[in-house]
Structure formats: C-alpha cells, structure tokens
C-alpha cells in the first residue's frame, strides 16, 4: 500500500477511535479529569523519511480534524504541531548510532528497540499533554489540577499505547533500494 494512503487511513481511524471510543469512556469509567489520548500515535509512526514540512502540516491537519470533532478549534492542533516539530530531534538523539541508515522505514519498537522507542513515545506524550492541558488550563482550574491532570493523562495514555503496540504489531517492511 502507498505510504500516503496508509498513513491517512491510520490517522482517520485513530481519530475516529479517539472521538467515539476514548472520549466516551471518560465520564463513568475513569475519573472525569482523565481522557486517554492516542490519536497522535500515527503521527509518531510516520516514516523517518518524511520531510519536516510534511510532518508539521500533517500534524496540524490531524489535530485540527480532531478539534472540529471536539468543538475546540486549535487546541489539539497546537499540541500536534509542537510534537511534530520536536519529533525529529528526539529521533536523532535516540536512534541507534552505529547504523548509518535506519533499517526500518518508520519508528517502532522493533526498529528502535523497546527502551528508546518507549522513551521517544513518553517524551512526546508528555509534551503533547503538557501543552494541551496548559492551553485548556488557561481558562479554568488550579495549578495542582494542571499537574495532576498532565501526569494522570500521560500515564493512562502510555498504558493504552503499550497495549496497542503489543496487540497490533505492525507488519514492518525493510527499507529496500527498489522503489
């Protein structure tokens, strides 16, 4: 499948899951503060080779799409643009140094090893939630609420992301010279 189509499909799927599943469970099942977020996971799965322009615009559009579902234009878009901007730096730091080129096309536990991959996901999750909750918190709440909400949301999101990675291992293709 084409990379572009595949990623578009993933993003749409994750946004739909986010809107119709995860946003619905927050009230009765979890505490009212906590909304687990995983819609940005496809953004972390985008290929290594994507240009940074493409990355930023993809993030912006994905975030804005979710925003229009949730009636908060700009909130998730801002957070997504932030993590898309930071993403290449984190990959540069955490990628295996000995390999001259990445063996795999996109970030995954297999491509980066589990620990660096989890650190990568954790840093971006924390940034995403921190920034998003900060923007939300501008309108209400106390500072303690802010910290608690960032931490708890990050933990829950990380749990769900690990589960997703374990249950649905992606079929990974090696980078080949043939186009």
């Amino acid at each position: 499948m084409n990379d572009f189509l595949k990623n578009t499909f993933r993003i749409i799927l994750f946004i739909l899951v986010q809107v119709y599943v995860l946003n619905e469970i927050k009230n009765p099942v979890l505490h009212k503060f906590i909304v687990p977020y995983i819609y940005y996971l496809p953004l972390l799965w985008l290929p290594f080779s994507i240009t940074r322009w493409g990355l930023l615009f993809t993030g912006f559009i994905a975030g804005l799409t979710l925003d229009y579902f949730m009636m908060t234009p700009g909130l998730h878009a801002a957070a997504c643009v932030l993590i898309c901007y930071i993403r290449p730096y984190i990959i540069n730091i955490l990628a295996p140094k000995d390999a001259a080129e990445f063996t795999y096309r996109e970030p995954s536990p297999k491509a980066m090893q589990w620990t660096p991959y989890m650190v990568y996901v954790f840093i971006l999750t924390l940034l995403h939630h921190g920034y998003m909750v900060f923007l939300e918190w501008l309108s209400f709440g106390s500072f303690l609420d802010f910290i608690l909400k960032v931490i708890s949301t990050t933990i829950i999101s990380m749990l769900i992301i690990v589960t997703v990675e374990l249950i649905f291992p992606r079929r990974l293709r090696f980078r080949t010279n043939t186009p």
Partner: peptide, 21 residues
C-alpha cells in the same frame, strides 16, 4: 524554514483557539 513553519502553524492554531472558543 522549519522553525518558521512551526511558528506559523502554532500561531494559527492559537489564533483558532482564542477566536473560536
């Protein structure tokens, strides 16, 4: 250019945020 695009998109989303909410 990457940084400027980042800034532009940030400002755009914050503008959305503070205009429409």
């Amino acid at each position: 250019s990457n940084f400027f695009i980042f800034l532009f998109l940030q400002v755009l989303s914050l503008w959305f945020l503070f205009t429409y909410n």
